[in-house]
Design a protein around this nucleic acid. Sequence first.
DNA 1: CTGTTAGCGCCTTCAG
DNA 2: CTGAAGGCGCTAACAG
Lengths: 317, 317
Amino acid sequence: MTVSRVINNSGYISQETRERVELAIAELGYVPNALARSLRFKQTKTIALVLTDITNPFFTTVARGVEDTASEQGFSVMFCNTDESQDEEAEYLNVLVQKQVDGVLLVPAVSSSESVTFLRERGVPFVVLDRRIPEVPVDTVRCDSELGAYQLTQHLLDLGHRRIAVLSGPAAVTTAADRVKGYCGALEAAGGTPLVVYGTFTQEGGYRMAQQVLSAAPRPTALFAANNFIAIGALRALREAGLRVPEDVSVVAFDDLPAAIVINPFFTVASQPAYEMGQRATALLLDRLNGKETFQAQEIILPTQLIVRESSAPPGS
Amino acid sequence: MTVSRVINNSGYISQETRERVELAIAELGYVPNALARSLRFKQTKTIALVLTDITNPFFTTVARGVEDTASEQGFSVMFCNTDESQDEEAEYLNVLVQKQVDGVLLVPAVSSSESVTFLRERGVPFVVLDRRIPEVPVDTVRCDSELGAYQLTQHLLDLGHRRIAVLSGPAAVTTAADRVKGYCGALEAAGGTPLVVYGTFTQEGGYRMAQQVLSAAPRPTALFAANNFIAIGALRALREAGLRVPEDVSVVAFDDLPAAIVINPFFTVASQPAYEMGQRATALLLDRLNGKETFQAQEIILPTQLIVRESSAPPGS
DNA sequence: CTGTTAGCGCCTTCAG
DNA sequence: CTGAAGGCGCTAACAG
């Protein structure tokens, strides 16, 4: 008890006792057991970040924003890769709840409400990141995928493209769906006919989807990749088909690559403020934990930024 | 108690009681408290990954290898970014020890033995990742930086370069030092004079170091970047100076960028098997935890792979 | 100012 | 086969 008082600087302690205790602590290399503390206070000072794949630079940057913000406030972060699998996600959430994390930042693999319901039933605060859970009011921090896609498509339309294909992600993922929606909105307003293929948010997916749309006749003059990996895969397919970018086919994409890892910024993109998304989501979650945010669910929607680079040009240029 | 027996499938339970308990569990959304369990068993089933910056694709990939391997064996992973700061590192380790993590994977910010001693004194198993702690026998998983650097330098020598500058990382970081050493070994054997500058493992660092060595007379004909970020920064400096790669200056680098995020593989590199490093380090740590590895410290040294691409060519070509 | 009691939720051990 | 006691390390509340 006396030791506890010394460590936590609480209550009255005589100078002499304090020094004796501190000496003993140093000598023994004593470290307080945060587990026991957590058990008592029902607070672990730990949050979890559940995402699909930390290997994607977008999520890496988000993760960095999360960790920085969390550690500033004395929280640790556990991270989990679901690989877009709902089962993995459920399994991780189960473990996290058992481990009594104070809160969860979740990039849901699918837009169903199961995970969210699971957490809510067990009283674990959470913030949904990057994607939406339709029809359920939950704290969410994400970008405006629809508007970003609209702008990206509009940019292609302005350049004169009419046959624009979307290489999308899984239909069940809201960012994929929203981007398709924004694209359709812009395209239909201009009297074009949507051409949409669905696949995975991976390089392989982009490669396959690109091959698929390129075999169509007439060939699209522009491709819209729903994320960075898809864009890279698509580019590979274009090269193999002997098509030049942007001369033969323009390419635009969602998600920019960090300046630190890219040699030649090339893709025209709708860039998402990944670091800030991580920051904001964490701040919101911690506010909830501290009871600062007690009102209803809020949705923080950040803007994307259209950055025009060399991968897009007028058709047949 | 009876509930405990049901959950853990231990001891005798009548079928009927089991069913009643299971029903109650489902109804109440009961979740066992892993904290209490950990307190009793002194096992949290959690390990920590302490690295400098998860934003670096090399470490991102390592992290992925770690998480995959850990979760396979039922362990969760906490991650911490030290930004090469020894103080941050010490602070994180302190928290982690308090939180009773079962083990730590550490990419030490500096090569001093403080962190390692800290962990050892407190009985926390750990594996050092990527870097060495000189003169202290500890479990280590890393690449052969010296040999990799030797090969990279030899490659430049073979092309005919003699004035080769190294843009290194912090002198206190063993990977930086080892790479300089390998470079010096190759260069001196060929009768060249080493030109080494030290900086940070960042794009900014690479930019500044490149500017510095390019102002030397005679100008180096080749640059050796000690990591991927430095290479990118150096390339920026070269461009600004109106120098072409590889025509005017060749560039080689340590660390490859994952194929999924790179458009045009361009740099000649010594590639490290990042994912495997994470895997191996985690496996070793978990073996220690399970008492499988009870013998003395071992050092697992993985080979780098020399990949020749377009950024290197004979001088004046 | 310091120490004792009790309980957070778990499971080993021992009674019933 | 099921339940009660006790302790993992911590601290609020209360005694001394």
